[in-house]
Amino acid sequence: MTTAPVIPPEARCDGILRPGNTNCAGCGMSIGLQWLEQALDGERPTMCIPACCGIVTAGTFPTSAYGVPTVACTFASAASVATGVSSVYAMNEEDELTVCWTGDGGTYDIGVATWSAAAERNEDLLYICYDNEIYGNTGGQRSSATPQGVKTSTTTAGKLEPKKDIMALVAAHRVPYAATLSVAHRDDFMRKVKTARKMKGFRFLLMLSPCPTGWKSEPGDSVDLIDTAVRCGLFPLYEVYGGRRYRINARPDGTPLQDYIKRQRRYKSQTLDLDALQAQIRENWAHLETMARAFPAPEL
């Protein structure tokens, strides 16, 4: 028996991420891509995606689960390829948005020099890092985005070092806009993408991206996990304008860190130091609040 498709095939072709992509069930990146599309309000960006889950998502040639022009870049090259793409769009006076869509491996590790240079040149790019804190595509190895205490296939006892503060690194480039994104805070997400879209130059968005496969969590928990990460203070939602002016978008509400940790088996490690992590969160917040007080971004 065949039934009429719920979403007609012709409507499936133009979205950023089409149904039938190969992301795991419950992948945060998928939510991010859906929301990116919705925030862009019908605009169809060009996506530059390096080696990462995000490009495997596209499926196998000649099919593309991306319904927009997409370049599968070499691992470190998203920002350089995107520079070329956006430069040519600009010289042809085409108001096309070029998006770098990269994982934490491509952003925190191998791609640092590339995006750093693009940021320093203030290339007209919307750079979005979906950070699942792991080399997910290769089966779950540590990256410099992996938090302390997390078990990966290359930190089997739990990672010793804390997560890299990529936002600080980005801010140090004094780019026009940098912000963190949560897939549990839709309005905030939408506003930030729209804010970024309206600006010119290098705009950086960091999205904590739940990865049921790598985090060893329930796919259905993905959004709730990020919500908890924000509420317990682990993942602050904030914006940095010009690398200097801060705005905090959500503050911890007393939700215990344990609520976040206990639903992910990746945290079941001998080296997880909850007190240290909690202290780190407090320190991060003290720093963030200080910056937001001393160098506030204009009120919304």
């Binding site: 370049v71 070499t74 350089s80 390829v81 520079t83 070329g84 793409v85 430069s87 590339t114």
Partner: peptide, 14 residues
């Protein structure tokens, strides 16, 4: 590496 990256992106954009 990025020099060729820029060329690739620019070339793909025509």
């Amino acid at each position: 590496h990025s020099a060729m990256g820029v060329c690739i992106g620019g070339s793909l954009a025509g």
